[in-house]
Write a protein that binds this DNA or RNA. Structure first.
Length: 319
DNA sequence: ATGGTTTTTACTGCGTC
DNA sequence: GACGCGGTAAAAACCAT
């Protein structure tokens, strides 16, 4: 209960009016009469510090999502056979409700544009789930697609490839390392991945050109190194050394035009050898998706490129 | 379509266990 | 002999023009 100072009691002129929010009444604490009833509760939904209680007492979720075409704020007509007070609904009303529900579902996606949006967003949801991408990435993907709609003519473009290109961009924005091919494999498992990747790459280029490079940040080498290190379960100190060497050699031009995966794999391999933790070239190359030859070539470049003051094992020094 | 660059494939030999 | 590594040449893939 709160004491209100702005109003006086019409009976005793007392200024100590209190509101009983539970019953929606305004009461005079002097004479006890109800000054006003059915008053609106303008206060916070709940003062509980417990999240669970807050959720229970909340009037609405207060959350919208870009990953649904209607932002997730649609009205659903439930299939319950009881009304709000628990009384059973009679047969005639029930039929009417079924009819309403059917039409409500139809008008939710009314225009072809909305239908396409719903379709693409559903595909994005499925893909992010199968690729184990976080909700954050899905939301970013959805938002990028919505922004895209005005800039690029998505009509007639492959839903699968647009989805892949958008998720790829969202991953970059969220600092998640996923190659376009990985994403395409998640959408169309099995054959056809190559051609889909190619088309998705074309769409991605168009997107970057239209939306500007700020929307598509370039992933730094440390992200690639960490990803390979995590997948190969490399020791932390090896990863740390790899990151350190990468930092020292970042100014040299060894990474120009080379695949970042190969360079990251080489950094890790060099580090493991230096620390006496012999990771096999075969293992690190298969995780990085490059061949052993590529790793060897990158190793050579790393070791010869810079003034790295490192002592090499005789066998390594040869290269 | 073309030419340059990078990566892959396939093969080889060497050293170590 | 098996294994891991390093080297090489040719082919394939990629990319900018």
């Amino acid at each position: 209960m709160n004491i209100l100072q702005t109003q006086n009691c019409p009976e005793c002129r007392s200024s100590s009016l209190v509101d009983d929010m539970q019953n929606g009444e305004l009461i005079c604490s002097g004479c006890g009469i109800v000054v006003d009833d059915q008053i609106a509760d303008c206060g916070p939904e709940t003062i509980s510090s417990n999240l669970e209680d807050k959720m229970k007492l909340a009037r609405a979720t207060g959350q919208t999502t870009y990953s649904q075409h209607d932002l997730g704020i649609t009205t659903e007509i439930s299939i319950s056979s009881k009304d709000f007070s628990g009384k059973t609904i009679n047969h005639e009303v029930k039929n009417q409700m079924n009819h309403l529900r059917k039409w409500q579902q139809r008008v939710r996606v009314s225009t072809p544009k909305e239908r396409r949006l719903a379709n693409v967003l559903a595909k994005m949801g499925e893909t992010c789930e199968s690729l184990n991408l976080s909700k954050n990435v899905l939301e970013t993907t959805s938002m990028i697609y919505r922004n895209l709609d005005g800039h690029i003519d998505v009509k007639g473009k492959s839903v699968v490839c647009i989805t892949a290109a958008t998720i790829y961009m969202a991953c970059k924005q969220c600092d998640v390392v996923r190659s376009l091919e990985e994403i395409c494999r998640g959408i169309v498992p099995g054959k056809d991945v190559k051609s889909k990747t190619k088309l998705a790459a074309r769409y991605y280029r168009t997107m970057v050109m239209e939306m500007g490079s700020l929307k598509a940040p370039v992933l730094t080498m440390d992200k690639y190194i960490s990803k390979i290190a995590n997948t190969t379960q490399t020791e932390v100190r090896v990863e740390r050394l790899a990151l350190e060497i990468a930092e020292k050699t970042k100014d040299s031009s060894i990474s120009d035009g080379k695949s970042p995966n190969g360079i990251a794999a080489a950094y890790l391999y060099v580090s493991s050898v230096l620390l006496g933790q012999n990771i096999l070239q075969r293992d690190v190359s298969s995780v990085a998706g490059v061949t052993e030859v590529t790793i060897r070539n990158r190793c050579k470049e790393i070791l010869t490129s810079h003034k790295l003051k490192i002592t090499l094992r005789p066998s390594l020094a040869k290269c």
